[in-house]
Design a protein around this nucleic acid. Structure first.
Lengths: 104, 104
DNA sequence: CCAACACATAAGCACACACTTATGCGATTC
DNA sequence: GAATCGCATAAGTGTGTGCTTATGTGTTGG
């Protein structure tokens, strides 16, 4: 189940940090490691988890592998969250209803 | 960190099922167990995790404890998700920008 | 080509997690 | 007021997770 992979992937603070870093702009695994105090295999493993959760996607570039945020994963979270729209704070709720209407 | 608690709480499929059940309407722990094949202590522990993640809140009623969805947790997820608004699919993105504008 | 590089994978280990059984603790009911 | 009910907590156990070191694989530059 992909939904399970997503939440499990985000359950780790290091992986959320990696994801956040990638959200600021795609980069390769080595660049991601800079200023993060994480070993190369650990980074590779984290990226593998994020990849199978569709939170991140790779693009081979020569001997580098460029990573970037995959919108698919985020969309699935948004979809999950939308199921509980009724419980969001009232102000947000009103806007969401409007949003839904405009979305047809 | 509460953000960590939230994702870790949702990483377990049983807890997501409990949360989903509560989203359909508040109920006590025993009612939650019905049709779920889960022991009483396990349910109690799961509810404890969901509670400290602010995904669920309790309200004592006599010797029962009524549980219901806590909007705080959902709002925090929405907030987290909003940080990556730029990566949502274009159609959703346009609507989100509109939403943001209307939210001032 | 072959050495260095960027990254992935394998195997092992310490710790966290979700479960179990057993027990505790208020509240209710008879 | 004692038994029962609804739920929480304690303690122990098997499994999963994230790290490590070691090694493999594909690519590039001298």
């Amino acid at each position: 189940m992909i939904e399970n992979d997503i939440f499990r992937a985000l359950a780790d603070p290091t992986r959320r940090a990696i994801f956040e870093k990638l959200a600021a702009g795609g980069m390769n695994a080595s660049a991601l490691r800079e200023g993060m105090e994480i070993s190369q295999p650990a980074m590779s493993q984290h990226l593998s988890v994020l990849r199978s959760a569709k939170l991140v996607r790779e693009e081979r570039q020569g001997r580098f592998v460029n990573y970037e945020v995959d919108p698919d994963g985020l969309a699935l979270i948004a979809q999950w969250l939308a199921k509980y729209r009724a419980y969001w704070p009232a102000r947000i709720e009103a806007l969401k209803v409007l949003l839904k209407d405009m979305d047809q």
